[in-house]
Design a protein around this nucleic acid. Structure first.
Lengths: 236, 236
DNA sequence: TCAAAAGTGTTGTCCTTACACCCATGT
DNA sequence: ACATGGGTGTAAGGACAACACTTTTGA
């Protein structure tokens, strides 16, 4: 007996919301849009959209990310499904949240005129619609946790970056000061970085060597458990 | 302007599936049901059900867990949302998977006659409907990962348990032999266990002391990052 | 008295941390 | 020449892993 449809069941809207992180050199930022549409027109929110009939959740998230940023091949990971019956004030909607880590410079090259978007440092997030603040909070904790054991923060940097840049990123994400000697030893001991011959000369007179990821080793070791921050206890 | 409903959008069934783990003293097991209903009647599957109009996802998962096991106040955590458009052969359904850790003995006291359920060791999972095998695989990896840093496996044991029991649990979950001297030192150094005065005398002549969780400290330290297994590298 | 599992301590190695000085360069 | 940030080495302490013998008791 072939069944065609489940009867007497309640169908629900399924949406995606994207927490898009970028690093401005000092702080981790989130990309938000000012809604030009109802509901809650004029307020800030995460970029989101409904899941279409023929696409899976990952595809929907990629599509929505591309719609705002123009970017593809981005680090994107499912975070959590939010399903409070009243979280969306219009109609019940289950939202599957994804977080993305992008190189903030790549974004700035793109310009999307359909949405007015802006970066906000995590400590200065404005009031958001629905449960979007909760989503960002959870995403932040997830990135923090993940970055303590996996080399995921490289996704936030350009292809060429310096150790001081990398260190500020770690310091901001973990909200801690790190000793630069210990940091460089630890990071370099992973074998993931290849030193380039040229230097970045904007932010210091001496200049700091550029590094580049060894992509083979990066992929191979991504899921390995590394110890990337001094006191994992400082996480909660 | 108040909107009443999103127009032109596609509504989807939202279901919950529960991966219920129990430990039989030797192996980690999963509780499966033999479906007495369509679709796929007669095949093994996870326990699941649709999300009802007025309940959130956690509530739906608790309800479904209780329906099968009779148990409440169980460790239950959202795992992942599965949303391939064709994963359910009847009709598109997004399933939010949860995993539960229960004391297998508590379950056996309960008898649910509506469902014929059975425990399967992880290495002997039968063929399952839809994407349920993938769900179990992901849940297994999640438990393994989580247990390496957080004292979550206690949820699988009765209130009173012995160190050898705990050790076999860790050994099975991480698929590794652990030195008992190092293991007991590490576990006891967390300060989470209180030794009882009585012994378990079934499985050895000498008898092994019972321990009990210090619930205050357990709650306090649950999210702290502990090092609970010898070589985190043995995870992948 | 023997077998079977429980319980316990020490040592060497490695990893982690704390810490201070020199280097290169632009002004 | 000096100020600024980049880059490196070492020593002490703590954590981890490897390892073997004694204890208890039921048969």
């Amino acid at each position: 007996m072939q069944i065609k449809r489940y009867t007497h069941q309640n169908r629900i809207l399924v949406a995606i919301d994207c927490i898009i992180f970028g690093f401005d050199g000092t702080h981790l930022n989130v990309l938000l849009i000012k809604r030009g549409f109802e509901p809650q027109k004029g307020r800030w929110s995460l970029m989101g959209g409904f899941v279409l009939p023929e696409e899976n959740l990952d595809h929907a998230a990629s599509r929505i990310l591309k719609q705002l940023t123009g970017l593809t091949d981005i680090y994107l990971e499912q975070l959590y499904a939010f399903g409070d019956p009243y979280r969306d004030t219009v109609e019940r909607t289950v939202s599957v949240a994804y977080f993305a880590l992008i190189d903030i410079n790549k974004y700035e090259e793109q310009i999307n005129h359909e949405y007015s978007a802006a970066w906000f440092p995590l400590k200065k997030i404005p009031s958001l619609i629905f449960d979007h603040e909760e989503m960002i909070q959870m995403a932040k904790e997830k990135v923090q946790y993940k970055a303590a054991f996996h080399p995921v923060l490289f996704e936030l940097l350009p292809e060429k970056f310096t150790l001081p840049q990398l260190q500020s990123l770690y310091e901001d994400v973990h909200n801690a000061m790190i000793d630069k000697r210990n940091f460089s030893r630890k990071i370099l001991s992973t074998g993931l970085l290849i030193r380039q011959n040229d230097k970045e000369r904007e932010s210091s007179k001496k200049g700091a060597f550029y590094y580049r990821l060894d992509k083979r080793k990066y992929q191979a070791k991504f899921n390995a458990i590394l110890n990337l921050i001094p006191n994992p206890q400082s996480l909660k």
